[in-house]
Design a protein around this nucleic acid. Structure first.
Lengths: 105, 105
DNA sequence: TAAACTAGTTTGTATAACAAACTAGTGTGT
DNA sequence: ACACACTAGTTTGTTATACAAACTAGTTTA
């Protein structure tokens, strides 16, 4: 047990990564963890989010350094592609481990 | 897969129980799931929450019907005892199953 | 009588998620 | 030429929330 653990014998969730913990973003991270790369429309459909929310959540994940957003053009049509960064993959692994620990995995 | 699943092939977290999902309450639920019964001070120490927050979160769990709060007196000292209800235990079980599914448990 | 303890409530601040409306350009059908 | 749908957003407004800190109210102990 960590030396600065102020709480008791249970897994400490007070420091859980809330960037990932939020269900919408957890869904996005789960998808990106599996598929390596996904574009905006694909994530829109898979996540069930509205465009505004998807955009906002992707921005948050990008700010956190968990995903990389690559913008390009398909001919003249804008195309947005997302993929996990190394940091994102590590953060997701850590989150899963922490949650599994807390939930008695 | 549920017939009204609008998202794709991944576990749907859009309907996750946010009463339980919140880390502070997840901690409380985890404790109460294990110990059957716990008083205010015990939960205060184990959770690391402030009194105000603990009080608020317990109220929320009570409103949701997930815990029962029993107030009594130890002599003349007020004593607050909490325990999971059947509904709370079921909701927690469901939450754990859903999260395990989502996280590849 | 002063301090510490039990168990809160109230208040203020900051963050957030979310839907809906709006922007801006591109491609397609008639 | 015009309307419509598509890609990829941003902006706005509402609502909920978490959290800390201050405050209340009574009890027990030194």
């Amino acid at each position: 047990m960590a030396k600065d653990d102020k709480s008791g014998q249970w897994a400490d969730l007070s420091d859980v990564d809330r960037i990932i913990h939020e269900p919408a973003r957890l869904t996005l991270m789960t998808i990106l963890y599996a598929v390596q790369s996904a574009d905006f429309l694909y994530l829109l459909k898979e996540s069930g989010l509205t465009k505004g929310n998807l955009s906002a959540h992707l921005s948050k994940l990008e700010e956190a350094g968990y995903i990389e957003i690559t913008k390009s053009f398909n001919g003249k049509v804008p195309h947005t592609d997302c993929q996990l960064t190394e940091a994102g993959r590590n953060a997701f692994d850590a989150y899963v481990q922490q949650m599994r620990g807390a939930l008695g995995g």
